[in-house]
Amino acid sequence: MTDAELAAHLAETAGRILIEVRNAGIFSDKALGKAGDQTANQFLVHAIREARPNDGLLSEEMKDDGARLAKSRVWIVDPVDGTREYGEKRADWAVHVGLAIDGEPVIGAVALPDAGLVLRSDHPAPVPPSPTPLRMLVSRTRPAKEALAVAERLGADLVPMGSAGAKAMAVVRGDADIYLHSGGQFEWDSMAPVAVALAHGLHCSRIDGSPLIYNQQEVYLPDLLICPKPLATEILTIIAGLDTAT
């Protein structure tokens, strides 16, 4: 099984497990999120260590002992991206399984279990052209001020959505055009989605235009931009202007 096949298989299987945990009907919303995180993390950690014992591993739900820093190949996973949405039995949550090689987001799989989909870096498809007006994804609970300002400048419609993975895959699928986040994230929030988006020909960067680099000692990676390449320069220029204005 190739790395990409493994990533997709694990993301899909973890998604099915999470659906079963939710359908058991024995957890309150808050307890459901915790149970889902723990159950999916246990599966993913054991499966990756069994399948790729020589690789490093970073998971949101696992204590990081720093051993991954000495590895070229590091799996970065988020067992439930959008724990709140999962706990509330919404559909806008995801499972992230990705492989960074020498810091680059090379392989990724993002499962959207309620949609029965797994978006993969090894199965790229054309991204539909952007309509007018553009559609910008924002957090449904705490929209970033930069995203709101850029949307106003572009005349873009706002599309509230839950998890980072769900937002990124909405751009990949052509359901939205821009995902700009500046409210704080960690490596597991973006690594697998960025690998998938890059494979589909989208622009992915920090909001200052610098590359997204993974398997760092400090796993806080607070911002990102995912959009079609023709839009990237204009968006980055607007963001730079916002910085100047402040």
Rank of each mutant, 00 (worst) to 15 (best):
T237Y: 01
V219R: 14
G82M: 01
V138Y: 15
G108K: 02
D122G: 00
I19M: 14
Y86K: 03
A11R: 14
I101L: 05
H203Y: 09
Q217A: 13
L6M: 12
S190H: 09
S190N: 07
R142I: 10
V74Q: 03
G87W: 03
F186T: 04
D114H: 02
A149Q: 15
W93V: 05
R142M: 12
G25Q: 08
R153G: 04
C204Q: 07
C227V: 09
S139E: 00
D29P: 14
W188R: 06
A197E: 01
A31I: 15
L99Q: 09
P53R: 14
A24Q: 11
L198K: 11
Q185E: 13
D81P: 03
I26C: 08
G209P: 08
A144C: 11
R49I: 06
I213P: 07
K30A: 02
E234K: 10
E152M: 07
G98K: 00
A7C: 15
V172R: 01
T246M: 07
A245I: 12
R52S: 10
P222I: 06
D81K: 06
S182V: 12
E5L: 12
Q42S: 15
L225I: 08
G36L: 13
E218S: 12
R49D: 01
G165W: 08
A70C: 04
T246V: 13
Y86G: 10
R140T: 08
P105K: 04
P128M: 02
S28W: 03
F27C: 09
F186Q: 01
Q185M: 15
I17C: 04
T132D: 07
E20S: 13
L99M: 07
G108Q: 00
T233A: 15
S182H: 10
L242M: 11
A240C: 08
F43N: 01
S139K: 00
I76V: 08
R140S: 10
V118N: 02
E146M: 11
D102E: 14
R84N: 01
D92L: 06
L58W: 12
Y86M: 10
E20C: 07
P211V: 09
S190I: 15
L99C: 06
V74S: 10
E88C: 12
E104R: 06
T233M: 09
R206L: 03
L202H: 06
E218T: 12
I207E: 05
N54D: 15
D223C: 13
V74G: 13
V21M: 03
N54R: 14
K71L: 12
C227E: 00
S72P: 00
H46S: 14
V80T: 00
A24E: 13
R16A: 15
R206E: 00
L242D: 09
D92I: 05
L221R: 08
T13P: 14
G56H: 14
I19N: 10
Y86H: 04
L158P: 02
V194A: 07
